[in-house]
Amino acid sequence: MMKQKMKPLRIVNLMLGVISIAFFVFDTIVFLRLQPKMVAFVPLTHYEEPLLTWIGVGLLILLLFYLLSILQLASFMKQADRVRGSDIFLLILGVVAGVLVFSDVALFSDINKQYLAGFEQPEWSLVYPIMGFQLVIVLFYMVFHLSGKWQRKSAEKINRDVNIFLMVQYVGLVCGLMGLSIMSLGFFFPSGWNLVTHTLITGAILTFPYILSLGYWLVTKLSEKDRQLFDEKQRLDVGKSAFLTLIIITFLMFGVFLYNLGHLEGVIRMLWFPLYLFSSLFIFSLGNLFFSRRG
């Protein structure tokens, strides 16, 4: 049996994965030590305060691990005979886990601020489930990195990519759905909604995976011989999908406008654009997938 040569990206991912797992252990020990003190408003020692900085470093490494693992999965999918459901599922989990790194940062920042201000820190209850989910994804990804499954490539040459195009649509679907779900919370908690934190920063974080995957697709297209973005069927599918998006979004935004007619100065002034953006992203990606798969 021929032994597979390890590629640099796989080696980097394996190293980052091991460091990430080590940081999960470190974080758990630190949190188990700090949580009782912070909840009881006991001052932290000089040795304990810098630990929070190290948690931040661990989160950065974790984010890098997710990004590079997704990149490796994407390049594996690009060469695959077809896009498999299991690969899409792993990709979506990775995107969600990566986005949750930003929510970790927000959670730890809120906990620290509330501790310093002398307020309760109910966010502690969210820290462990989120970290547990992220650890499971790291372990899943490590299994694939160790097995070398994402390194195997199809023997057949591919001149025009289709798998990355489909992958971008799946990422768009997930980002659109997550964005819609989170932005809809604004209608339920209008008084606590903040323009900068919730609309701008959360919106930017949720569109980040889509922009990255779109960038990867563009680079793939530019590296192709003819440098055309779509072939004739894709152009037709994208056109149909764009038309469908226009029709549905027009009705949807009209409905949102009517629903908020009496209080247009309320929370809707902070939500209309993200609602429009994430609905478009969701419907457009769904339409592209539907028309691509149908034909």
Binding site: D81, E156, N159, R160, K233, G295
Partner: peptide, 18 residues
């Protein structure tokens, strides 16, 4: 294969399949 034909005529495999 569909992929080989797609490569030869400059489209994606899905287009040949469709």
């Amino acid at each position: 294969s569909q992929q080989a034909l797609a490569n030869a005529v400059g489209v994606t495999r899905l287009t040949i399949h469709s």
